[in-house]
Amino acid sequence: MSTRLDPPLSNDHGGPVPAQGQTCPAQPEPTPPPKAWMARWEADTFTPCGPLAVGGGLLRAQGAVARDLMRDRHGRLYCLGLLALALFASALYGAILGAFSGPQQMLFAAIKFPVVVLGACAICLPSFHVFNALMGARLNLMQSTNAVLLVAAAAGLILLACAPVVWFFSLSTEEGARGFMIGLHLLTLGVATAFGVNLIWRVQRYARFKDQASLMDGRVLALWLCVFLIVAAQLAHHLGPLVNPGDFFSGQRGFFVTALVRPD
């Protein structure tokens, strides 16, 4: 049975195709000209040959990855690839986070940081899926999972790229400059997060340009990204410390904002 839920058919250029027996509208609404990055994305081609190749696609062919996400192609492969990338990148960067406080903390943080990243993804996935569905978006659960993991994996790519530089500073900076190291980590994490957020935002805009219909709702996405960042910060605060030395899990309760305002 056909409902309004069915995704609109589209031709090669993304324009809607009239159903059989229907006539084309006399004057279709003019499509706004694509931005430069959209034109680049249109030219992207990429076929994932395995989960480990997904990282390459995220760097070099974001348009092709976005189209695969929109059409739900290779969903399982992308899910595995994005998950593996997010896990590996966060574990490696976690180890660098803890490296400043010795080998034990390095091991603790390498375990805890992936829990923070993937835990925030898991906690926020139901709200992403349900609230996008409420706004009429066409994502199925696999697409929602991949969209959420896309943010983590894209941020992970930036963390991987920054890892050698930050690791060098961790090794060479003296104990007294802990504030500098925390600042450097915050800067790196901020840039990585901005990259992930920007990528998912562009995927949403590209889908609207391509299909004239929203894959995800922009307002839900904006609100959800705020919730995601707050959840990740709270999870990091609860599972912490990541940079400073401490026990693996103290179980201490508290709101992360309180710790920012009144650091003990």
């Binding site: 898991a122 139901p126 959840v231």
Partner: peptide, 28 residues
Amino acid sequence: AVFATCLGALAPVLALFAATAPIPSMAS
């Protein structure tokens, strides 16, 4: 069903904050 599904979708977020909020604390 819609009301409960919306709440269910937000339950993991609430669970995180509820389980990590200080106790006893009137503010939390």
